[in-house]
Simulated assay, not measured.
Amino acid sequence: MATRRAVAPVEDVPEETTYLFRIREAASEEEREAILLRNDDGFHAWLNYCQHYTHIKIDKGSGAEMRGDELICENHGAYFESGTGFCNFGPCEGAYLNEVDITVEDGTVYLSDDEYEFVGEGPIDDDDDLGSKSNYEF
């Protein structure tokens, strides 16, 4: 069984967008971003990367855009079901977001995925802009 690591108190997880946090892959030591959200089914966590171009983040640091219970990749217009991670519209239709295992107990969301360790809340602190790039200079 996985060791539980507290990610956030339940009351810190917004109801209409996502909570961004950092994890580290146990095997590679690579730091990644993950998003936590709540819907009518409970709480869900996914790696914070679109399945069309996996370097594009769904939550760019201020919460993911959502339409009802669907996450929206603003770069590609892909829609992902918040409870399953299934892309039901867009260029990666039929793909799934990568799930991160969590549990909720006593008012706290815990990371329970053996593949990752919890690093902290918020985005990865780097100077790389992983959004879409334009060759046009303004």
Score class of each variant (00 low, 15 high):
residue 19 Y to I: 01
residue 38 R to G: 06
residue 21 F to H: 00
residue 32 R to Y: 00
residue 62 S to V: 05
residue 87 C to E: 01
residue 32 R to K: 15
residue 135 N to R: 11
residue 4 R to Y: 10
residue 100 V to T: 07
residue 42 G to E: 10
residue 65 E to P: 04
residue 122 G to H: 02
residue 14 P to T: 05
residue 9 P to F: 13
residue 23 I to E: 02
residue 100 V to W: 05
residue 14 P to W: 10
residue 112 S to M: 01
residue 81 E to H: 12
residue 70 E to W: 08
residue 28 S to H: 03
residue 19 Y to H: 08
residue 51 Q to F: 00
residue 1 M to L: 01
residue 43 F to V: 06
residue 83 G to H: 14
residue 109 V to C: 09
residue 53 Y to S: 13
residue 31 E to F: 02
residue 1 M to V: 01
residue 131 G to T: 12
residue 134 S to D: 09
residue 27 A to G: 03
residue 56 I to K: 05
residue 72 I to P: 12
residue 113 D to A: 01
residue 49 Y to A: 12
residue 75 N to G: 10
residue 79 Y to T: 12
residue 50 C to D: 08
residue 76 H to W: 12
residue 134 S to Y: 05
residue 60 K to C: 08
residue 12 D to H: 09
residue 90 G to F: 03
residue 35 I to C: 03
residue 81 E to N: 11
residue 35 I to P: 03
residue 122 G to Y: 07
residue 31 E to H: 02
residue 82 S to W: 13
residue 24 R to S: 10
residue 138 F to P: 07
residue 112 S to N: 11
residue 53 Y to V: 11
residue 94 G to S: 06
residue 81 E to P: 05
residue 73 C to D: 01
residue 1 M to C: 01
residue 100 V to M: 10
residue 62 S to T: 10
residue 53 Y to Q: 15
residue 44 H to N: 06
residue 48 N to K: 06
residue 15 E to M: 09
residue 46 W to S: 01
residue 118 F to V: 01
residue 97 L to Y: 03
residue 22 R to C: 03
residue 106 D to M: 04
residue 14 P to D: 08
residue 123 P to A: 09
residue 29 E to Y: 09
residue 34 A to E: 00
residue 89 F to Q: 14
residue 6 A to N: 10
residue 12 D to M: 13
residue 86 F to C: 11
residue 121 E to T: 13
residue 13 V to Q: 10
residue 95 A to S: 15
residue 45 A to Y: 04
residue 93 E to M: 11
residue 96 Y to Q: 07
residue 12 D to W: 12
residue 26 A to K: 07
residue 69 D to V: 05
residue 43 F to D: 08
residue 25 E to N: 09
residue 67 R to N: 13
residue 95 A to C: 13
residue 4 R to M: 10
residue 36 L to Q: 05
residue 78 A to Q: 01
residue 102 I to C: 04
residue 45 A to C: 11
residue 11 E to P: 08
residue 77 G to L: 07
residue 109 V to F: 05
residue 68 G to C: 04
residue 54 T to G: 09
residue 16 E to F: 09
residue 123 P to W: 00
residue 112 S to F: 03
residue 128 D to M: 11
residue 91 P to E: 13
residue 103 T to D: 14
residue 79 Y to P: 09
residue 25 E to T: 08
residue 105 E to Q: 08
residue 121 E to V: 09
residue 69 D to R: 14
residue 102 I to S: 01
residue 40 D to A: 12
residue 31 E to K: 02
residue 119 V to C: 09
residue 109 V to Q: 02
residue 109 V to S: 04
residue 2 A to W: 04
residue 29 E to I: 02
residue 16 E to G: 08
residue 8 A to L: 05
residue 133 K to M: 04
residue 123 P to I: 02
residue 85 G to Y: 06
residue 85 G to P: 07
residue 102 I to N: 06
residue 78 A to S: 15
residue 88 N to E: 00
residue 73 C to P: 10
residue 23 I to G: 02
residue 36 L to P: 06
residue 83 G to L: 02
residue 9 P to V: 12
residue 97 L to K: 05
residue 35 I to Y: 03
residue 101 D to K: 14
